[in-house]
Design a binder for these strands. Structure first.
Lengths: 234, 234
DNA sequence: ACCCTGTCTAATGTCGACAATCGACCGACA
DNA sequence: TGTCGGTCGATTGTCGACATTAGACAGGGT
């Protein structure tokens, strides 16, 4: 039993450290996925996780349910949970759907962007370009996430944001391994600048079109990258 | 212990009767919601359900997790699960989001509709009008569901359909009590005919616009209906 | 009268054990 | 040799009990 480390120290900075085991399990699986400790097709066994973390299977199951509903685990009744293996078409579909949701999210609030907010978006794009040129892929993704959040979170449609964020997380977790192999620094800047430009134009059709197109292309690229890596594996 | 009725008869038509308790719990909660046995704001206690169904809390929790992830239960840690109480704006938001998803789902496959498929859609609309005029509200909803499925399921974007169907189910379960109070029979026919007409026109922008508008208006109406009913309750 | 505090209760969170079931393995038979 | 059927192991499904915690309630201090 290794419940020692919990509740021990760790009360300095945050008042709300992870409380329930369920949340810890979720973070642990995220970590495993992001570090390629778990790969597509792998079975994630409850008892294995329970042993790894020194807890019982109950909170593990709670966490797996949540991951499953967010598309981060494939569930086969009476068999187990597996890291999903997405066909190229399914990858493109996921990004397409993301484009639909985020395109609308941004479009429907484009009128409310203040000049300083648009500048802030510009700043994010600059920073992404710099980070990309310095090969700081992780930083690119972080800033990209901020850019994305800042744009979409102006919208107050909770249902829309729920789906948007779920899908965003899913794609982030499942395809992190292709970061940095998608676009050149110049392309990263140009693509995001096109989105900001569309917002500035206040042309709603154009905004949706640009965002959809962006994700369609990104999805297509990732699908292609996965295909070659699975070919080489076979 | 009332596990008698399980596995008893009921093997004629379906080979796959409900197997796990979890699925039975989900159906049971659906029933309770649809029959107003559970109302918005009510707490759904695990032990109560466990006693009601004669099973332990484990499968109940499995089911509640799923319902929660589908937006059919509000979860408050360490407190419990509640039937969601949606503010008018949130209702509109849900329908808006549904319009976005379904509008795209239909638009992106509009070219593939064959003449006979379009006729089938016409037939659904006719049938809905007839049922509505005969006050068969339940039948209207059933046919409406068929119409909806037939249109959207032509799309093969699994991610898109997943969200579409989740949201469709959520709205179906939560707002069933307003069926029949939304539109006149003539309006029902006219509104759905407009959608089919848009598909026939192959004008993609128009298709998305019509579907979005349809759900926006429906959501607005339901939000208004809920507001008056909650006013009268207060 | 108001608020702060300690207790108490009822609900969720977690546990270890047992049951049911899927899939792999292996041997018998055509 | 290939296929069918039974056995077996590993994994999920379910159970009842215990631990923990949010919220209600009462009592005392101001």
């Amino acid at each position: 039993m290794s419940t020692i480390d919990r509740q021990a120290g760790m009360k300095k900075t945050m008042d709300f450290v992870k409380k329930t085991y369920k949340d810890q399990v979720i973070d642990y699986i995220y970590q495993l996925l992001l570090s390629n400790g778990l790969q597509p097709g792998d079975q994630v066994k409850e008892s294995w996780l329970a042993q790894q973390m020194g807890i019982s299977r109950a909170p593990i199951r709670e966490a797996m349910k949540e991951l499953m509903m967010n598309g981060l685990l494939d569930y086969r009744p009476q068999v187990g949970n597996f890291i999903p293996v997405l066909l190229p078409k399914q990858i493109v579909d996921c990004y397409t759907t993301r484009g639909i949701l985020e395109g609308y999210a941004v479009m429907s609030v484009c009128d409310s962007f203040q000049a300083e907010e648009l500048q802030r978006l510009d700043h994010y794009v600059d920073a992404m370009g710099s980070a990309a040129r310095e090969q700081h892929h992780k930083r690119v993704v972080e800033i990209g996430g901020d850019f994305h959040d800042f744009m979409t979170n102006k919208n107050e449609n909770v249902q829309l944001l729920e789906y948007t964020n779920r899908l965003s997380l899913k794609l982030h977790i499942l395809f992190c391994r292709y970061w940095g192999r998608l676009y050149t620094p110049a392309e990263i800047e140009q693509r995001h600048r096109a989105i900001v430009a569309a917002i500035r134009s206040l042309d709603k059709d154009q905004i949706e079109k640009v965002v959809r197109q962006h994700y369609l292309e990104t999805g297509t690229k990732i699908a292609a990258l996965q295909e070659v890596s699975s070919d080489s594996a076979a």
